[in-house]
Amino acid sequence: MSDIPENHRRAGPARNANGSPKGPNAQIAAKLKALYTAVEEEPIPDIFLDLLEQLDQAEQRGKSRA
């Protein structure tokens, strides 16, 4: 058994019938997760890919001079 009295133990987050957490932050957490997933799935803009390619080329030129 634990040394912590039962009335001082922390319970985990309350959960609803399907096992997901419920409470004031659950809806916020779900929306943040959905937003993160949507951003993660967005394609990388072409201008950013072009800048990365220019950086790679500059690094290769720098290595060939050394």
Rank of each mutant, 00 (worst) to 15 (best):
G62V: 00
R10W: 08
S64W: 03
A14T: 01
N7E: 11
L52D: 02
R9A: 02
D3T: 12
A66H: 03
R10C: 11
E59L: 06
A30M: 09
E41W: 12
D56R: 04
Q54K: 00
P45E: 08
R15T: 08
L35C: 15
Q27C: 02
G23F: 00
P21V: 13
P21I: 12
K63E: 11
R10F: 11
D3R: 07
I44R: 07
T37G: 14
G23W: 01
N25L: 13
G62K: 08
P43W: 00
Y36A: 15
A26E: 01
A14E: 09
L52N: 02
E41F: 13
E59C: 03
D3N: 14
E41A: 15
G12E: 05
T37C: 10
Q27K: 02
E42T: 09
A14M: 03
L51F: 04
Q27E: 13
L51Q: 00
Q27T: 06
N16H: 11
A14V: 01
I4K: 11
E53C: 05
P21E: 14
E41K: 14
P21Y: 05
D50R: 00
R65G: 09
A17P: 07
R9G: 05
K63C: 04
S20G: 04
Q27H: 08
A26P: 00
G62S: 13
A34E: 14
T37A: 15
A66P: 00
S20N: 10
G12D: 12
A14I: 02
R65D: 05
I44S: 07
R9K: 09
Q60L: 13
N16D: 12
G19W: 01
Q57N: 07
A58I: 00
K31H: 04
D50T: 01
N7S: 10
A29E: 04
N16R: 11
A11H: 07
L52W: 01
D3F: 14
A11T: 09
L51Y: 03
E6L: 13
I47N: 02
E59D: 01
L32Q: 11
L55E: 04
A17H: 09
R9L: 04
G62A: 10
K22G: 07
N25Y: 05
K22P: 03
